[in-house]
């Protein structure tokens, strides 16, 4: 039997629309659920006080420090590496076997699950290099983890710079590096910043790779060789060990707000970038 195309059209659109709405509802639900339960706990004292009894009472101040330090440390390492990789790929070579290998490596690295990064960071940085559970180990592990994101977004941003700018620059006697420095990178900057923001967002929320490399000390670190605990790890421990669901919600809310803030900032930068382009 042949169904009238009009009905299949109607049916299909209905199903597609409801699937989309359902998807969005899930997202909205997750965010609102956490915020509703967590915001009452969240306050200035929650953010600025030290935890007591392993987090059962008190605030989350040390984890706030850890959550800032680790991503910053990771990005300090990954950003220069990532940008120069993307400059090399986009400006200095044609498609060769080397660029194919680099690109394949980047893609593979992007697909590796965080638990593998955790295992690697543990055996390489913590044990083999003897850095112990520390900001150093955790930061380096996160740096390796976000490297592909930075490479990809930077390369895309660099390729989006109009070729005519490069031509003009060369025609005025600029060398390749001068062209990159003066014309390409300034114009690709917003796109690059977007990639950095997304990487910060991912680092903030990361747990598996961090817990085995940076440890989970609740003390405020005094050097890069000290262990630290991020909000995500703290939240995981609170929730998993059933220490305090109230403080878990509070930590989760802080975490979500931080991650959403960083991501919205990234979208905003990208949006302005695109708006400026057209």
């Amino acid at each position: 039997m042949r169904i009238n195309p009009k009905y299949t059209q109607w049916g299909a659109v209905t199903i597609l629309t409801s699937a989309t709405i359902f998807t969005i509802l899930i997202l909205v639900f997750i965010i609102f659920f956490i915020l509703e339960k967590g915001l009452p706990v969240l306050g200035l004292s929650f953010l600025t006080e030290n935890p007591q009894e392993m987090g059962k009472a008190g605030g989350i101040f040390p984890t706030l420090i850890g959550t800032i330090i680790l991503p910053v440390f990771a990005l300090l390492i990954a950003t220069p590496l990532g940008i120069s990789t993307s400059v090399y790929l986009a400006e200095y070579t044609k498609e060769t076997r080397i660029t194919k290998v680099i690109r394949f490596g980047t893609d593979c690295l992007a697909g590796i699950p965080s638990i593998i990064f955790g295992l690697f960071g543990y055996i390489f940085f913590v044990i083999t290099l003897g850095f112990g559970w520390s900001i150093l180990s955790g930061g380096l592990t996160l740096a390796v983890m976000v490297l592909p994101t930075i490479i990809r977004t930077s390369e895309e941003a660099i390729r989006a710079v109009p070729n005519s700018y490069r031509k003009v620059s060369f025609s005025l006697g600029a060398s390749r590096w001068q062209t990159v420095k003066k014309v390409v990178l300034p114009n690709a900057l917003p796109g690059i910043v977007t990639g950095i923001m997304l990487s910060i967002g991912r680092s903030i929320g990361e747990t598996a790779a961090v817990i085995f490399t940076a440890g989970s000390s609740l003390r405020i670190p005094s050097s890069v060789f000290d262990s630290t605990r991020t909000m995500a790890v703290h939240f995981y421990i609170l929730a998993r060990e059933g220490i305090s669901s109230e403080n878990a919600y509070g930590t989760a809310a802080t975490l979500i707000i931080a991650v959403l803030f960083v991501n919205l900032l990234a979208y905003y930068t990208m949006h302005r970038f695109i708006a400026k382009r057209s």
């Binding site: 220069p80 590496l81 120069s84 990789t85 400059v87 090399y88 790929l89 200095y92 290998v101 680099i102 394949f104 490596g105 980047t106 593979c108 690295l109 590796i112 593998i116 990064f117 295992l119 690697f120 055996i123 390489f124 083999t128 390796v144 490297l147 592909p148 490479i151």
Partner: peptide, 21 residues
């Protein structure tokens, strides 16, 4: 040359990870 060396960072990280695991 410097750019090319840094460009190998991703692939060498991958190899390092594989090697150690």
């Amino acid at each position: 040359r410097i750019l090319m060396i840094t460009a190998l960072s991703a692939i060498s990280s991958l190899l390092l990870i594989a090697l150690f695991i």
